[in-house]
């Protein structure tokens, strides 16, 4: 069998399930297949989320609202809504609370449900505040190091260690 895009023999037999037109069968030589797969690969999962998200936002928000929303930053990890929208990845557990209102329609769209009904941690969800506090302190420490404020970084490291120590002695 010849490659569908050139004259070389086809050794890749590809069934593409992700195309807009539905299913696509391709028979390609190694070179054409490589090209096809590399360009196809970058369009995975991530844009799908931002796609769902942006269509949702267009319906509900004006351009100005969206601009304001994009600038919203999580106080714990510092990720902006714009960065999440671009990357399709959140920055920390607190984002689910902080961007909760924006995430809920997205979750509904992807999962057709927005309430967890499965398994729960056995130990119970305790003390989430000190957990997010740790994430915030870790971020502040990074910033202090970047600003070469080592005294502050040292201070923050000690606080992180003391909170971690408390957590451990509770176990």
């Amino acid at each position: 069998m010849k490659c569908q895009k050139c004259e070389k023999p086809a050794t890749f037999h590809i069934t593409d399930l992700t195309g807009k037109e539905g299913l696509l069968e391709l028979h390609l030589c190694p070179d054409c297949a490589k090209q096809y797969l590399q360009t196809g690969e970058s369009e995975q999962e991530t844009p799908k989320i931002s796609g769902v998200l942006s269509s949702q936002l267009k319906l509900e928000q004006t351009a100005e609202d969206l601009k304001e929303l994009d600038g919203k930053e999580c106080p714990i990890c510092g990720i902006s809504f714009y960065e999440f929208r671009q990357a399709g990845r959140l920055g920390c557990p607190h984002d689910y609370v902080f961007f909760g209102e924006e995430l809920e329609p997205l979750l509904l769209n992807v999962h057709n449900g927005s309430e967890h009904v499965g398994k729960q941690p056995k130990r119970g969800v305790r003390d989430t505040e000190s957990q997010t506090e740790l994430i915030r302190l870790r971020r502040e420490m990074k910033e202090a190091v970047q600003e070469e404020n080592y005294e502050r970084a040292q201070e923050l490291r000690d606080r992180i260690r003391s909170i971690e120590g408390e957590g451990r002695s509770n176990e």
Partner: peptide
């Protein structure tokens, strides 16, 4: 889970970097 504290939210379940895996 007996040794590590997972990120968990009563409503959204186990919290994941990508919302498509949450719950």
């Amino acid at each position: 889970e007996s040794r590590l504290t997972y990120a968990f939210h009563p409503k959204f379940g186990y919290l994941t970097a990508c919302p498509t895996n949450a719950g």
